[in-house]
């Protein structure tokens, strides 16, 4: 009951999804749409689980007075405030001033700044890793240099460099990506098949 029913369910539902692909009938398509809608709704409902976990982690930090527990107040107040704004009665959903302001002046700046930290990290990673330690490392280094040197004005050399960069991006780059994608595709199909057949069942836990 605890494991057999879920495994059977996985098999039936996934088999339907596979077969569905080959059957253009309306009824099948209709069920297919339904299944997709359902997974989406389940996904949203599961967010409650996340909320609960978040709440528990931070209230416990506060209760135990563990290190930096003061910051947990900030997380919780951010959470509660945003939820209040988001479910503000009569606002007709999420179109109210505070909700939007929190989004545009708290979420957007932090998000964009986190993303832009990559500009620094990409430089430090390049400095540390791009050393001609071995043949492979040298290739990695040279390819990166050729691509980056495009930006350096070099007079008559510029067209040559930009052609070389273009070639690397168009030819070896394409080949390797294709090889990886074919491999990933196969691996993914195999994994999906293992899930279908119940060979891969780690996601169900063990007890």
């Amino acid at each position: 009951m605890k494991r057999r029913v879920p495994l059977m369910m996985v098999f039936v539902v996934s088999l339907f999804m596979v077969v569905q692909n080959f059957v253009p009938l309306d009824e099948w398509n209709w069920i297919y749409q339904f299944l997709l809608d359902w997974t989406m709704i389940i996904g949203i409902l599961s967010l409650l689980l996340g909320m609960w976990s978040l709440w528990k982690v931070h209230t416990q930090k506060i209760k135990r007075k563990s290190e930096n527990y003061g910051y947990s107040f900030i997380t919780l107040s951010g959470l509660i405030l945003m939820l209040i704004f988001g479910f503000f009665p009569g606002s007709g959903g999420i179109e109210n001033y505070w909700y939007r302001s929190f989004f545009y002046y708290i979420m957007v700046p932090i998000q964009a700044t986190m993303f832009s930290l990559l500009a620094f990290f990409i430089a430090s990673a390049a400095f540390r890793a791009f050393r001609a330690r071995s043949v492979m490392a040298t290739l990695l280094l040279l390819a990166a240099l050729v691509i980056m040197v495009r930006f350096v004005p070099m007079g008559p050399l510029s067209p040559i460099v930009s052609d070389a960069a273009g070639w690397i991006l168009k030819v070896p780059n394409l080949a390797a990506k294709r090889a990886i994608i074919i491999g990933v595709g196969l691996g993914a199909v195999a994994t999906a098949l293992k899930v279908m057949l119940g060979i891969e069942r780690s996601y169900l836990g063990r007890d």
Partner: peptide
């Protein structure tokens, strides 16, 4: 589930800390 079962399998279910697996947030950069 997985971590709990793993501790069980290793014979140390008492060592499993429920709070070691937790939700952060589902916004990428957050």
């Amino acid at each position: 589930d997985i971590v709990r079962s793993a501790y069980l399998e290793a014979g140390r279910p008492d060592q499993y800390d429920e709070d070691s697996v937790f939700f952060v947030t589902n916004a990428q950069f957050a």
